[in-house]
């Protein structure tokens, strides 16, 4: 894992609390699963119909009927439950999930998220992302601060098609953590070690308050 990703995951792990029901998106958020072990009663939800994801199975014990939303073979913890997709999204849309952690392509200063489509490229689909951002009690987005080409991803307005409008509560990048208070605007919550405010502003198109 890159240094940037390690930093993001380490910071994101602090979002996990005892007793929470959490949905981890595909990609970088899935790596957070390694950090839930010390949270008492935390249950991971998988939108394909499992509340209580366990570790990957031992070699030889994998079961085609037991997968996560990333289609990886998993196990279920004691006390886990299985359900159909409508009930799963009732949990998600109905505000029963405490925290959804998703990857992002762009986040705007208004808390808009784009993470499902790049026009002109093959569109793979939004999966459950639009439901998750519109329904979870709290939405945390993890992404690298800049594209590989060095372009800003934290934007004044998203250039890519949206997954949801004003849906992000917290954004964690390898440079900083930002919050999106209900009254509007974007606020710097934390700077990563070794990053100055000047560096951050130079890498960020969005306007944000630093208090």
């Amino acid at each position: 894992m890159s240094d940037a990703r390690s930093a993001i995951i380490a910071r994101a792990a602090r979002e996990l609390g005892d007793g929470m029901c959490v949905n981890l998106g595909i990609g970088m958020p899935t790596l957070l699963a390694n950090h839930v072990g010390d949270r008492r009663g935390l249950m991971l939800q998988s939108e394909n119909g499992l509340l209580g994801i366990g570790p990957y199975p031992l070699d030889g014990e994998e079961d085609a009927d037991l997968i996560n939303a990333g289609k990886e073979t998993v196990t279920a913890v004691p006390g886990a439950s299985f359900f159909d997709s409508a009930e799963s999204f009732a949990m998600i849309r109905g505000g029963h999930i405490d925290l959804a952690v998703l990857g992002g392509m762009e986040v705007s200063q208004d808390g808009d998220l784009a993470n499902w489509m790049i026009p002109g490229k093959m569109v793979k689909g939004m999966g459950g992302a639009m439901d998750l951002v519109s329904g979870a009690k709290r939405v945390v987005v993890l992404m690298e601060h800049l594209t590989r080409e060095g372009e800003p991803k934290v934007r004044s307005a998203c250039t890519l098609p949206l997954t949801g409008r004003r849906v992000v509560n917290r954004l964690i990048t390898d440079l900083a953590t930002f919050d999106f208070p209900t009254e509007g605007g974007m606020v710097l919550a934390e700077l990563e070690d070794g990053v100055t405010l000047e560096q951050l502003r130079a890498s960020t198109e969005a306007e944000f308050a630093a208090v």
């Binding site: 997709s85 999204f89 939004m126 639009m130 439901d131 519109s134 098609p161 949801g164 409008r165 004003r166």
Partner: peptide, 29 residues
């Protein structure tokens, strides 16, 4: 959206022709 797809099937089988959902507001869909 996956949750909308599931609910569209559930509604279809339940005699409900349409429903309102917050999913996708403000997006291309």
């Amino acid at each position: 959206p996956q949750g909308t797809l599931a609910e569209r099937m559930r509604a279809g089988g339940s005699g409900i022709p349409a429903f309102y959902t917050p999913t996708g507001v403000g997006t291309p869909i």
